[in-house]
Computed example of a mutant assay.
Amino acid sequence: MISNTPHDPPRGRGHTHQGDQAIGQRLRIAEDLCRRRGTRLTPIRRLILETLLRRPTSLKAYDLLEAIRDAQPGAAPPTVYRALDFLTEQGLIHRLDAINAWTACSDAGGEPHDLLVVCTRCGAVAELSDPGLSAQLAACVARSGYALAGHETELRALCADCQAAERA
């Protein structure tokens, strides 16, 4: 069965109080996960996670650095990259190789997903789960003498909005 868990409704565009509450809850979940794992969601890590949670699409590292400049004027690329590495290791964000960007995980602390569909035009991401398809993919890869290096497979695609724009 495929379950689609795309990002929340567009973040960063006219946030409602409910949107802020949802982001606050996701940040509390992240802090709790880190605490249970013996790690810490430092202020810079929290800021980067919150910034990604508020975005409707993914962000490249330097765009993320620019987005946090007001709150962290002294932030430098190494600081951002270290925070991104930490958040990725904790499963709170995804590194999107297809577009060299990062996005918040929509279900951190929830059900795992195994497929990331990335719009190569706008950076939108859908998180899907189809264990049967993933098992078939792993078996196909194994027949070639390789083994999958991770539990997520990234697919490059165009979202519905970008498909419509391309047709217009």
Rank of each mutant, 00 (worst) to 15 (best):
M1W: 12
M1E: 11
N4T: 07
P6Y: 10
H7V: 01
G12E: 08
G14T: 15
H15G: 12
H17A: 11
D20E: 13
Q21C: 08
A22N: 11
Q25Y: 12
R26G: 12
R28V: 07
I29L: 12
R35V: 10
T39I: 09
R40A: 13
R40I: 10
R40Y: 12
L41I: 10
L41T: 02
P43D: 05
I44W: 07
I44C: 07
R46D: 05
R46Q: 15
I48F: 00
E50P: 05
E50Y: 06
L52V: 04
R54V: 07
R55I: 03
R55A: 10
P56E: 10
L59G: 04
K60T: 13
A61I: 05
A61E: 02
L64M: 11
L64S: 03
E66L: 09
R69S: 15
D70F: 12
D70M: 05
P73N: 08
G74Y: 10
P77N: 07
T79Q: 14
V80K: 06
A83L: 03
L84I: 01
D85L: 07
D85C: 08
L87P: 09
E89F: 01
E89A: 14
Q90N: 02
L92T: 03
L92M: 10
I93A: 03
H94Q: 02
L96W: 06
I99N: 00
W102K: 03
T103F: 05
C105W: 09
D107C: 07
A108K: 00
G110I: 01
G110Y: 13
G110K: 06
E111Q: 13
P112T: 01
H113G: 03
H113S: 00
D114C: 02
D114G: 04
V117Y: 01
T120F: 08
T120G: 14
A124D: 11
E127G: 00
E127F: 00
E127H: 02
D130L: 05
G132M: 12
G132H: 14
A135L: 08
A135C: 04
A135P: 05
A138E: 04
A138K: 06
V141N: 00
R143F: 07
R143W: 09
G145N: 09
Y146C: 13
Y146Q: 14
A147Y: 04
A147S: 14
L148E: 06
L148M: 09
A149E: 08
H151K: 00
E152C: 05
E152K: 01
L155N: 04
L155H: 03
R156Y: 05
C162F: 00
A164S: 07
